[in-house]
Design a protein around this nucleic acid. Structure first.
Lengths: 261, 261
DNA sequence: CGAACTTTTGATATCACTCAAGGGACGTGG
DNA sequence: CCACGTCCCTTGAGTGATATCAAAAGTTCG
């Protein structure tokens, strides 16, 4: 899937274009939150060190461990989650390419939640130390990173509304629309559709529903002609009706109107 | 309730002790996250400007408006919340004395949620401009504020778990235990109890349940001898059993073991 | 081609919601 | 001090949304 099987005898990571590809989604995302100069881009590219790709359903960061460094998702889909004592998993957030996590979670000495891939993922890592130096040297860039972080917080709040006060069908519709907007913002949607490489169990652990009910709710969304979902490719057939069904108000994502369409 | 009705003819705010009282809960809270020097205390006291007290159920910050400055809760209980188009309210967080909000939400130009008092409250406000200067001049203090902020984020994640995967009785038990720990941390619990100046409707909007079901669930908690709740004073009769019922693991609050007991 | 996972379906159970109404508690104004 | 309104809590009865259990059918992958 990635370029790992390129030419024989070639070192694994060499080309400059590869490096660009690593930060491309991140930069695309950050540009929504402030100007990103060529120097900023160079700094980010230097800071982001690619890590070995991970397969699907692989733990990336463990709950309870001491955080070190910032992860940037380059390709694929991942999630934050918490495991309860009874084995229940609650997914807290989806990460799409360009998303980073734990901008300053390193200030605490214990992760309160884990991170895992949903699909196969490519990941990069930023060292916390040079990142810390940024604050004095590139305050504008840090502000931009912080803005992006604040939107993640706002997203978490919207998820709380989702679980606390929306019905099953509204929850799923809302999730699908949020992902559409976020993927569009990094150029990874195709029209009104996108790859959604997650199982119905994942959706159940996201929405606080049972897998059976997720399945039936998806069927209802299809029956109403609102979505198509086949081999993990989602196509929203009627964004407007789905938006009104979900009560989706994208302002919490702080997206530009062009992204919204 | 406050000193507003003190001696006749006395100016409303005068005594130095009053100023101390404004920052006391904040400092008590911050000390859990890093050393707070006398200089830090002086800075915080200078930055925190008391605002007129507000009555119960009063909006403090409106959704959609441009954020300006940081609020610090001095006395009383407040909440963040979002209102849905259909009038439903979802409470996102409780604020107790010492809590502050919106450390850098000022970087966005639109609040995604509102803040309101639950009980009568005393509030202080920090100007964003001198606060911004802190970053270069008192980096340690800013780090401490950030740590406190991270715990608020972790709390929000735990609330997501609460709504997504706990039953009604577990949700309420979990909320009560969280508040016990947080109030203890600022010295506002009395043994295993505390003032809980919120209605059952507030609890319903917090836990995603109906008021009727909140009422019945509270009765069940009383019946099991786990809590007493009378005239908005909560007493937890059996912290250990309630903890195990709720599946409450306080580590996300980053509290010291002395606070936990 | 088999093992493991995922999706789908049916039947039944239950938790929590809605509706409706009565009964405090509290404050306000007459 | 009483009368009234308002808000809050409580209770009952009926309903509905979602969970659970169980098993079959489809998919993926080695």
């Amino acid at each position: 899937m990635s370029a790992s099987g390129a030419g024989p005898g070639l070192p694994r990571r060499l080309a400059l274009r590869d490096d660009d590809a690593v930060t491309a989604p991140l930069i695309r995302k950050l540009e929504r939150f402030g100007a990103v100069s060529a120097e900023d881009r160079a700094i980010l590219t230097r800071l982001c060190v690619p890590v070995d790709p991970v397969g699907p359903r692989t733990e990336i960061a463990r709950e309870g461990e001491r955080p070190d460094g910032v992860f940037v998702l380059v390709e694929g889909m991942a999630c934050r989650y918490k495991l309860r004592a009874d084995g229940t998993r609650q997914i807290l957030a989806y990460l799409v390419p360009g998303d980073f996590c734990d901008l300053d979670i390193g200030l605490l000495d214990r992760r309160d939640h884990a991170i895992a891939s949903l699909s196969a993922c490519r990941i990069a890592r930023m060292d916390p130390v040079p990142l810390g130096d940024l604050v004095s040297q590139q305050p504008r860039l840090v502000t931009t990173l912080r803005r992006a972080n604040l939107v993640d917080d706002a997203t978490l709040r919207e998820w709380l509304v989702n679980l606390g006060s929306r019905s099953a069908i509204e929850r799923i519709a809302h999730l699908f629309l949020e992902l559409l907007m976020r993927l569009r913002a990094v150029g990874l949607a195709r029209g009104d559709g996108y790859d959604l490489p997650v199982s119905q169990l994942d959706l159940a652990d996201t929405t606080g529903l049972s897998t059976v009910h997720v399945n039936r709710t998806l069927q209802e969304l299809k029956r109403q002609g609102l979505i198509e979902l086949l081999s993990r490719i989602l196509m929203i057939r009627n964004v407007q009706r789905l938006t009104s069904l979900a009560g989706f108000d994208p302002r919490y994502l702080s997206l530009s109107s062009t992204t919204l369409r």
